[in-house]
């Protein structure tokens, strides 16, 4: 298995590395967005796929990262790579503040608290106009950096996937899964579930924070509605559920399949496409709760790392 997978991975990564030298501007932009979705879906999987604590507001970390980065660039003139990392740090801090109280709650409470968090952050960003530009948005100085951002975004996508691999193959990852399977039993076996959940939550916030920062730099302009968009949380969730939650490659598969179909067909029918997302969630939950890879994994007794 390893002997096939590793060379194949190397080939794909090499192809992606040389891609900008041969591709059109549209191609690079599309791939950059795909990287973003891989990173977002993979991050959501770390908390929700592994521990079963569903975050309905994970895009809040993306938004927090985007605003932190944009402020660092526009107001304090930081170089963008540093600013994007600061976006990741900001998202982790937010996760710490929110996660400490909210992760003590059982599943549904946590889920809705996260939904609320996103709404509240959007309201706060709109309110503090002096700092954030409020509803009219925040512009960054112009800078042509699509290619470097392509590589940065790709690096985050790879990092998130590698992190997922490292976690899922570790004792830490198994313990996160025990929280999903039976939290009471996990505690009775001596597993400090609160600390494990918080750690997973922080790790799951870092990726979206950095990606949000790169997104802000790439767009050159952000405003609250499109930065704290519920539809983006929905998209991450659909990608992970479709591909297979709790697996390494499920979020990647989900991101590729759904992003490509979104680009090819659905983008022309915005509401139909979201309606389909809703329908996919319902269908996956009812008919294929493990997702595509989850089903293969169970049927052919494959490891979680496929």
């Amino acid at each position: 298995m390893r002997r096939v997978v590793l060379p194949a991975l190397a080939v794909v990564l090499a192809a992606l590395a040389v891609y900008p030298t041969v591709a059109s501007g549209y191609g690079v932009r599309a791939m950059l967005q795909l990287f973003m979705w891989v990173a977002l879906a993979g991050s959501w999987n770390l908390i929700s796929g592994l521990t079963g604590y569903v975050s309905f507001g994970h895009i809040a970390f993306f938004g927090a990262g985007a605003y932190a980065t944009a402020l660092a660039i526009a107001r304090w003139h930081w170089p963008w790579p540093v600013a994007a990392l600061a976006g990741g740090v900001a998202a982790c801090l937010l996760a710490l503040v929110i996660g400490y109280p909210c992760l003590r709650l059982k599943g549904p409470y946590f889920a809705i608290s996260m939904l609320g968090l996103n709404e509240v952050l959007r309201a706060l960003v709109s309110y503090f106009e002096g700092l954030t530009g409020g509803g009219s948005g925040l512009s960054l100085p112009t800078l042509e950096a699509t290619i470097p951002i392509y590589y940065a975004m790709g690096a985050v996508a790879v990092a998130v996937t590698a992190l997922a691999y490292a976690i899922i193959t570790s004792r830490f990852g198994l313990r996160l899964m025990t929280i999903r399977e039976d939290e009471v039993a996990a505690e009775a076996m001596g597993i400090d579930t609160a600390r494990h959940k918080l750690a997973a939550f922080l790790l799951s916030a870092a990726g979206p924070g950095i990606v949000g920062g790169l997104f802000a730099r790439d767009q050159g302009f952000i405003e609250p509605l499109s930065t704290f968009a519920l539809v983006m949380t929905i998209t991450m969730i659909v990608m992970v559920l479709f591909g297979g939650k709790g697996t390494v490659w499920g979020p990647v598969l989900g991101a590729v399949v759904l992003f490509v179909s979104q680009e090819l067909v659905w983008a022309r029918f915005p509401y139909v496409h979201q309606l389909l997302f809703g329908a996919i969630i319902v269908a996956v939950v009812l008919l294929m709760p493990r997702g595509v890879l989850g089903v293969l994994q169970q049927r052919y007794r494959l490891p979680r790392t496929i």
Partner: peptide, 12 residues
């Protein structure tokens, strides 16, 4: 997740 999917479908 199911009711979340229903919510999205209803809104759209």
């Amino acid at each position: 997740l199911l009711t979340f999917g229903i919510a999205i479908a209803l809104v759209n």
